[in-house]
Computed example of a mutant assay.
Amino acid sequence: MPKINGNEIRPGNVLEHNDGLWAAVKVDHVKPGKGGAFAQVEMKNLRNGSKLNERFRSADKVERVRLEQRDMQFLYEDDGMLIFMDTETYDQVQLPADILGERRPFLQDGMTIVVEFYDSEALNATLPQKVVCKIAETEPVVKGQTAANSFKPAVLDNGVRISVPPFVGQDEDIVVNTETMEYSERA
């Protein structure tokens, strides 16, 4: 595995540190007036979800881990576990439902997502960036209302509340960005 300097750590990097696999969530480069510069890294353990704040100086070496990414199809949820199937080998993998966090409602039956593996251990799952959802309820469309920076609240068919432009009506299909959890466009 390649070793990188402490000042080369970027958000999203997976590091082997303290005998665990950690994903860098937030990286701040700090240059204090006295002493050397360092990177303040907020990390999340990929196995148990614990968090850690660590300082890395530019001279510190840290192991960067490359995860294998595979497309997998979501089958069903059972006892708080999400079941995915590899579309090529038909192997099934279980991941805890809380791995997707607040984006869990966007996971739909049969959806293809990216699952990240370290050796043969499934560690993380990533939803597609854009998902099509139907608006379950919102205020009616008002004629003459422009889309100039005004939004109205809406509830999607999966129960998530977002803001949509005023020209979007009930029972319409829209595209939602799963990273920002915001309206993207009409479907």
Rank of each mutant, 00 (worst) to 15 (best):
G169A: 12
N45C: 09
S150L: 15
G110W: 06
Q170M: 14
V168R: 15
T178E: 01
S58D: 14
L67C: 09
V142K: 13
T126C: 00
A187H: 10
A97P: 06
I99M: 08
N45L: 09
F38N: 11
P128S: 07
L46A: 05
L127E: 02
S120E: 14
V93E: 13
T89M: 05
K51A: 07
I113F: 05
P165M: 14
P96Q: 07
R57N: 06
I9A: 00
P165T: 07
N13W: 10
V160T: 14
P32H: 06
V160I: 14
L123V: 01
V132K: 11
N149Y: 14
P105L: 06
H17E: 07
R186T: 13
W22S: 09
P165Y: 11
R161C: 03
K152P: 13
G169T: 13
E116G: 12
K130Y: 13
L127R: 02
G20E: 10
D28G: 02
L52Q: 15
V93Y: 13
Q92V: 15
K152I: 11
E88F: 06
F117I: 02
G110L: 05
V164K: 03
K3V: 01
N158L: 08
A125V: 00
D60P: 01
L82C: 07
Q108Y: 04
M81E: 15
K61D: 09
E54T: 10
